[in-house]
Design a protein around this nucleic acid. Structure first.
Length: 816
RNA sequence: AGUCCUAUAGCUCAGUUGGUUAGAGCGCUACACUGAUAAUGUAGAGGUCCGCAGUUCAAAUCUGCGUGGGACUACCA
């Protein structure tokens, strides 16, 4: 059908040029036969694709000559049909363009459809809802309209822009290579013209016929061009008369106004003496944003050296919403490439959007928008920032939920505050000011060296995360450290060290260690929680005089001390944590309170390393789970029940196809087979007629059970707990119950933590022995100077305490 | 329509080069602790890793086609 001519459907007007080439069938690859007839009526005047195919086929656009002889479309700038359009002339092309209430019953669309139907030119009439762009303010449909524009020929710099972009560190990388990279690959010239009122006027003056033009590049030049125009009698006075050339002061530049309404009054004179008027449009505001880095320094009139030699206009880092790909990110890059042949920014984070908690865009209309000022007032800037940074990576969309901030307050800031509060309580009591010499690490206990090792590992991790623009990883690492390691393990296990006993070296070590942790945490957190970190840091430094006492933000970022990092120590502490949690879980299963001491736990030894590591932390584990001893079980004559599991990672590459069958055979191994396997450090099998050689690396053997004992297994570690409670253990348990009750009483009575007391306890057959045997223990734990078992104690002189469901007695606590 | 991001427990998120019991926090349930106490700890329940197909001995992970959510650019019968 291509080339076929047809009769004009609505013969009101003809194109002013080449009308004979119009009204033909032409090919276009954007039209498919899937929809409709496969034939589309195009409008080269109103659509880019249409204009393109029409131009290629030599079809003229439907432009007519107006009263002044200018070629114009059949629709005017108000959106009304021109006079050529017969009965439609003067009507708006969209009903939405009429003032409210003035719109006709039938829109022009409908009228045209009726007309075509009546003339028997319409085969079928359907309603079709365009996914038309609408004005964001008035919601009316937008009319695309051909306008004359000034362009920057950015396509000429395309290759340089692509090359330079590859040297920019994009976060995330895919936005740089994908979205932004693709955008550069398909670059169009930059349309600079905008029909607005406020903005920078395009500094181009042209003669009426457009043959001569001048582009003004400075106020100085404009002033002298005006002088020329005055000399030719085109202007009477110079609005820039008071501007002093070479005076870069602000006052000098405020002597005039370069806004559209003023500069449009200026007429210049062309080389041949004709008057020139300014082009009416303004410059795309993105040009302002893109030239900001150098324009703010008044380049090229000032600071030439700084910008051209020292590259002051190149930012280390910028961040904006990912929707700025075509906005800020592009114009910065385009201008910098074209003017300086350089990048405008070294690192760029294109951050995602803040959505509501259901993942919907926030909008005032939907009422799901969060008021940032209210939020900051209520939750504080630090908790809000911490939540936003740690909850989602900056380039992911954030589902903003106020409850998430509450959680951050509780979990992170609350824990950190409590940890500091704990430190401050005892440090103040003991007058700790970090005045003593730094106790060398090797003289500090294992647990101190462990948390210091963890701390230094954290410094490395956080530093690397910030360095690579990964603040989310940094924040999460910090909060994991504070919650899991510092608070939940270090402080919890070390509590006694802070309040028990004299101001000894061990105590000072504990203070120094915890001080250091808090100080470094404050420094590491300061980029995300600037206010909280500053207070925490200065509260510490003002007392100790260490570091910068003015602000955390003036202190040097901590450097990791590699020598303090002991990965083996970190590993053994992990074992300690795991074993402790397993024992506690066994206690729980058996309903044996932690306060009840037990005799021993047994742990099968996997290898020499494991044994050594466990031995090093045995004391910590024992005190944590309140057990007297730990027994290491070497594998002796099949006492342990083991299980074997094939290691897919090593076997896969070797025996791919028969993997499943090997796994089936190995899993079927009985205790004897496993023992033989261990004895021979491997085994030979025949699977599917193929010989299979397995060594110790190809399987994982773990202890599954220790017959006769209560056992827990997690990963490769197995723990058995002896739950026999002897008379002695029971008595010690009772003593501990007593200590607990006494401590409660002390607190209820409002005693200070270092007050000494005197104790009286009413005799009771179930407890006498326990108290007598553990008298010293009870006294030292409760700071009691004397403890008497008495025969008589009136209830109004003491307090009834219940130790067990059916054992209770009366006790009195007095300050001495 | 194209390009890009994204989908894992009720919620918010981890999950290394593919490797066999998929993790954490919150929430929920139960309990413990009581010299961090408006604090803390432990345990338990909870999963179609969005769907389908493919590659592979093996897929949350790799490929393709879809679906939902989001962003931009363009077009629009």
């Amino acid at each position: 059908m291509v080339g076929l001519e047809y009769e004009q459907l609505l013969p009101y007007a003809l194109p002013h040029e080449n009308a004979d080439k119009a009204f033909r069938v032409i090919p276009g690859d954007f039209v498919t036969t899937e929809d409709g007839t496969g034939i589309v009526h195009i409008a080269p005047t109103f659509g880019a694709d249409d204009a393109k195919v029409a131009k290629e086929a030599g079809v003229p656009p439907m432009l007519v000559l107006d009263e002044n002889g200018n070629a114009v479309p059949l629709v005017d700038l108000q959106g009304k049909f021109r006079p050529e359009m017969g009965e439609f002339a003067g009507k708006f092309v969209k009903n939405e363009y009429y003032n409210k209430g003035e719109e006709p019953e039938k829109s022009v669309d409908v009228e045209i459809a009726i007309k075509l139907k009546e003339e028997n030119k319409a085969f079928k009439v359907e309603k079709y809802e365009h996914s038309y762009p609408h004005c964001w303010r008035t919601d009316k449909p937008v009319l695309y309209y051909p306008l004359d524009s000034w362009f920057i020929k950015s396509t000429a710099a395309k290759d340089r822009m692509i090359a330079l972009n590859k040297t920019i560190n994009w976060k995330p990388e895919s936005t740089g290579t994908g979205r932004f990279g693709n955008w550069l690959e398909n670059l169009n010239d930059w349309n600079l013209s905008r029909s607005r009122y406020w903005g920078i006027p395009i500094p181009i003056w042209r003669t009426e016929d457009g043959a001569e033009a001048i582009c003004i590049s400075s106020v100085e030049q404009l002033k002298s061009e005006i002088e020329r125009a005055i000399a030719k009698g085109l202007m009477t006075k110079n609005p820039l008369a008071n501007f002093v050339v070479g005076d870069m002061s602000k006052a000098n530049y405020e002597k005039f106004d370069l806004h559209k309404n003023y500069v449009d009054e200026i007429t210049l004179v062309s080389a041949s003496g004709k008057p020139m008027k300014r082009e009416t449009d303004l410059i795309d505001v993105w040009f302002d944003s893109g030239s900001m880095p150098t324009a703010q320094l008044h380049y090229p009139f000032e600071n030439k050296e700084l910008i051209e030699k020292q590259k002051l206009g190149v930012a280390d880092f910028i961040a904006e919403g990912v929707d700025q790909t075509r906005g800020w990110f592009f114009t910065l890059h385009a201008i910098s490439t074209m003017v300086f042949d350089n990048i405008a920014y070294k690192n760029v984070v294109s951050n995602g959007l803040v959505l509501d908690k259901n993942g919907q865009k926030m909008s005032k209309r939907l009422g799901n928008a969060i008021d940032p000022f209210q939020t900051l007032d209520k939750y504080g800037p630090d908790a809000t920032r911490w939540y936003m940074i740690t909850n989602a990576q900056p380039w992911d969309n954030l589902k903003f939920d106020l409850e998430g901030i509450t959680e951050v307050q509780r979990k992170f800031f609350g824990t950190l505050y409590n940890t500091y509060g704990f430190f401050a309580l005892y440090a103040n009591l003991d007058g700790f000011k970090y005045a003593e010499e730094e106790i060398p690490l090797e003289k500090r206990p294992e647990i101190d060296r462990w948390i210091i090792s963890k701390l230094n590992s954290l410094i490395k991790e956080v530093d690397a995360a910030y360095e690579t623009y990964e603040p989310t990883k940094a924040g999460r690492a910090i909060q994991d450290f504070v919650n899991d390691h510092l608070s939940n393990w270090y402080v919890r296990l070390c509590r006694r060290r802070f309040w028990k006993g004299d101001y000894s070296e061990d105590k000072i070590a504990a203070y120094q260690t915890l001080y250091t942790c808090l100080e470094v945490v404050a420094q590491l957190s300061s980029p995300i929680a600037p206010f909280y970190a500053d207070l925490l840091y200065t509260d510490l430094s003002k007392i100790s005089g260490k570091g910068n006492t003015t602000s955390v933000h003036l202190s040097d970022f901590p450097l990791a001390n590699e020598k303090a990092i002991d990965l083996d120590l970190e590993q053994r502490m992990e074992i300690a944590q795991k074993v402790s949690s397993m024992v506690l879980s066994l206690r729980k299963k058996e309903q044996i309170k932690v306060r009840q001491p037990l005799q021993k736990i047994m742990v099968p030894i996997l290898d020499a390393t494991f044994k050594r590591q466990l031995q090093d932390v045995a004391d910590l584990v024992l005190s944590e789970v309140n057990v007297k001893e730990i027994q290491y079980l070497e594998d002796t004559a099949g006492v342990l029940v083991k299980s074997i599991k094939p290691n897919f990672k090593t076997l896969g590459p070797k025996y791919g196809k028969i993997m499943k069958q090997i796994a089936a055979v190995v899993t079927q191994f009985n205790q004897n087979d496993i023992q033989n396997f261990e004895k021979n450090s491997g085994a030979k099998l025949t699977v599917e007629g193929e010989e299979v050689v397995l060594d110790m690396n190809d399987v994982e053997i773990i202890t599954q059970d220790i017959p006769g004992w209560l056992v827990a297994t997690e990963g490769s570690i197995t723990v058995a707990l002896d739950i026999t409670i002897t008379q002695e253990l029971k008595e010690e348990g009772i003593a501990r119950e007593f200590i607990n009750r006494i401590q409660n009483l002390r607190k209820d009575s409002g005693f200070e933590v270092n007050d000494r007391i005197s104790l009286k306890i009413l005799q009771h057959s179930e407890i006498n022995e326990a108290i007598i045997k553990n008298k010293n223990y009870i006294c030292s734990e409760t700071l009691a100077t004397e403890l008497n078992l008495v025969e008589k104690l009136e209830q109004n002189n003491g307090v009834v305490v219940e130790l067990d469901e059916n054992v209770s007695t009366i006790m009195s606590v007095e300050k001495v």
